[in-house]
Design a protein around this nucleic acid. Sequence first.
DNA 1: ATCTCTTGAGAGAGCGCTCTCTTAGTCACC
DNA 2: GGTGACTAAGAGAGCGCTCTCTCAAGAGAT
Lengths: 331, 331
Amino acid sequence: MRRPTLEAVAARAGVSRATASRVVNGQTTVAPDIRDAVLRAIDELGYVPNSAARSLVTQRTDSIALVVSEPGNRVFSEDPMFSTAIRSASVELEAVNKQVVLMLVSSPKSHARVERYIAGGHVDGVMLLSMHGADPLPSALSRLRVPVVSYGRPAVPVDIPYVDNDNVGGAEAGVRHLVESGRRRIATIAGPQDMIAGQDRLAGYRNVLRDSDRRSIVAVGDFTRESGAVAMRQLLRDDPELDAVFVANDLMAVGALQSLRQAGRRVPDDVAVVGFDDIEAAKYTEPPLTTLRHPIAEQAAAMVRLLLNLFEGGPTDPVILPTELVIRESA
Amino acid sequence: MRRPTLEAVAARAGVSRATASRVVNGQTTVAPDIRDAVLRAIDELGYVPNSAARSLVTQRTDSIALVVSEPGNRVFSEDPMFSTAIRSASVELEAVNKQVVLMLVSSPKSHARVERYIAGGHVDGVMLLSMHGADPLPSALSRLRVPVVSYGRPAVPVDIPYVDNDNVGGAEAGVRHLVESGRRRIATIAGPQDMIAGQDRLAGYRNVLRDSDRRSIVAVGDFTRESGAVAMRQLLRDDPELDAVFVANDLMAVGALQSLRQAGRRVPDDVAVVGFDDIEAAKYTEPPLTTLRHPIAEQAAAMVRLLLNLFEGGPTDPVILPTELVIRESA
DNA sequence: ATCTCTTGAGAGAGCGCTCTCTTAGTCACC
DNA sequence: GGTGACTAAGAGAGCGCTCTCTCAAGAGAT
């Protein structure tokens, strides 16, 4: 007992397969009564078009790959940024009747797998999420002549449309806030320097310090809570007198707050802390975190729009979304 | 300039399409020299099999749908449980060369979409994640005669293999820990009662209280941080004398800790708090959270195995994984 | 030397659909 | 009434692949 085919529908409705196909695809050149007969047959048989057959001839799959180059170290599971972006992209694509195929890339082996999969024509386009600098995927995919867009500016200069937030401007605003509130020794916990977000946020920090004759005090983390805690301890050793720290993401800021607490420093009295991302958890830290909000869902939605533009020939210029300083209690 | 077909490979290697196909699919009945010639042709042309054509004839897609019935209210983005399960399932499936198609269900409209998609033969099987009691999907899918497994026991009695953790036993262990440490007035913040995890964890709480002549004090949340904060405030109003609270998940526990702090209660001195899930953030709360760990990744892996068994005729009995009490500082 | 058996390779049908081409039919207009 | 324009429906090719069936060639048995 297999699934009914278009042939069966046509037979039941007493028309040709071509006409049945026209009805299924919503063409208007079918007489109303015939149309109704076909629809009735579809309903009675519970017909659903076979997608493989359809894409074989149309050369489209209506599926989009969402490739997440995850940094491996549990960031994917912990950083709500990923799920928020995935969710938003998924909802946006759903609205235009496209399906999301999620691919997580971790090992070089899965790299090859992703490439093969995409080369195999499973998907009409690719959305790339958060790759590291050395990620070979952007160039590999653009070589395959598959439509590709990126969430975040690609690290290598490759001609892929992308959406990013204003990392530099956001970091500048955060550090400026610390300067303006009279902090003298402002350290930073930077993100991984093989990621654009890590680089740009550090650049923003440096820009402001340079203009305000303070010296920079830098520790580097990898965007995980744990690395934030470690980096904070190191900063306190390097400069026990520091009175502020700009942390490149909220997850690391949570770790930093814990280290500060353990070191007996009060926040914000002794040390002011500014994070980046404004994840939900930032409202629930002790004290609640001052941080930079950027619209993750909008960014994902803009990325989807970019991809659709790529299909339909619309504008594909890079999109940069603004950040906003959210002042809570930590600074 | 389209992608090379098997025909092209065969022509270049000077063999028939059938032989080329045999090589591509790793059949052994091909002479070594011919085999090499075909492989060379594949390499030179950059041939990748067209998946639509292949599944049209094989009736397989090697894709599995991961359907997440999300509760809508941002839980998906915030609760690391989802990402952890998704990630684990994805890795496990990758190992057996299957692809994950992620489908988020929120509106009733997307319900229909998911059903159509699955009925359309896009996937070979379905994994269901976290559905509410009223979720019509389990029965709808099992009616489609598509292999389905569930992450978490389905709320309706439907014959679907599933993997769950021992919610009742875990809750009992958590509450027993509070009883044994001498707490007298033990409240609970329960999860949504249309979810099995919510029901079972509340049942575990009640089981232990019943056996220890304490009365139960219940507030209900929806597994979000915010709802945990609200529920905690309500509990403090209902019974200002309470000295412990068992919270049905860590996210709500984080909210509860904040409310306790705002109400001037010390944890664990005045009020002991036990959570459930042992998410990464539980280590970083103030104070660190005592909670019940259950192996989310293993649960997802077990679900994948169950699905593969469904394909290959292996055992498909429900799997229940144990929980473990992790004692930190909050209780 | 003939026959059977095995092995390796080709021929070709067909998976379910779309879409172009063709044809039949209707209507309008001179 | 004949011609042309247009509409609605059918015929059939073909998307790229797998897989059964068939066949040729060589090995081994009689």
